[in-house]
Amino acid sequence: MASATPTRIIAVANHKGGCGKTTTVVNLAAEFGRMNLSVLVVDLDPQSNASLHIGKKHPSEVTVTCAELLLSETEKLPLAIHEETHIPGVSLMYGSLNLGKSEDDLKDGTPRPSEELRDKLSPLMGVYDVILIDCPPSLKLLTSNALAAATHLIIPIESGSQYGMYGVTDLMKHVSKIRRINPGLQLLGALLIKHDERQTVCKLIEGTAQEQIGKLLPVRIPTSTKVNQAAMAQTSLHGMDRTAKVTREFKQLAALLAAELKLNGKESNDE
């Protein structure tokens, strides 16, 4: 499983809530896992929806979550990784309500508050093929930590939403600030979610996103009730309905990213 290619760390960030960060993280992880890549999901969101979705434990039952890891020494890293999740091939570092407190403590207690996560994850380089970081809906320290640790960035955007567009300028400014401490951070692109090509608003946002962010991922994620069903059933879209359009789009996105990032996954057969 440990491949020759270096570990890719993909941050999925946007401070707009409900734009599909967690959905993207969970389903990309699941598809990468199905490609026999070794995958780790890092849940930096105090709401811990990714953990509640794929984790076998409730975050409150977990000894070492991202909250404890961020404020501790690196020795806790092995305790923070949970290899058993609801998604095959996907490991998890749990989120926790305490992440809110960790954010405050980071600010006061560490010399480089934005670089703690990068530090804590460094022993995992070469161990996992892909690490996906789910960010909280804010541009504060937790998101900064994700961006500083990441090699790549995906910005999910709710298609057709004016509100979603407003924040993008601020986000891009923040990303360029973070590049001062992480110059290698590459933008994979904006990912349009809840997209409906028949709607004018969606077409308009598509154009503006291209303009503002500069790069759009070629896949469009449609609105689908399967997304909510999968979250409720604690499975991936593939586990919920492998033939749905939304599932196929995520599969295509994973294949595309794997090619772009030169991930050595074996093509899985659709059993």
């Binding site: 409150s60 000894t63 070492v64 404890e68 501790s72 806790k76 305790l79 926790s96 309500l97 305490n98």
Partner: peptide
């Protein structure tokens, strides 16, 4: 989570 707030839960 609220009750244990301020206590660290570790190995």
């Amino acid at each position: 989570t609220v009750v244990d707030y301020g206590r660290t839960h570790i190995m």
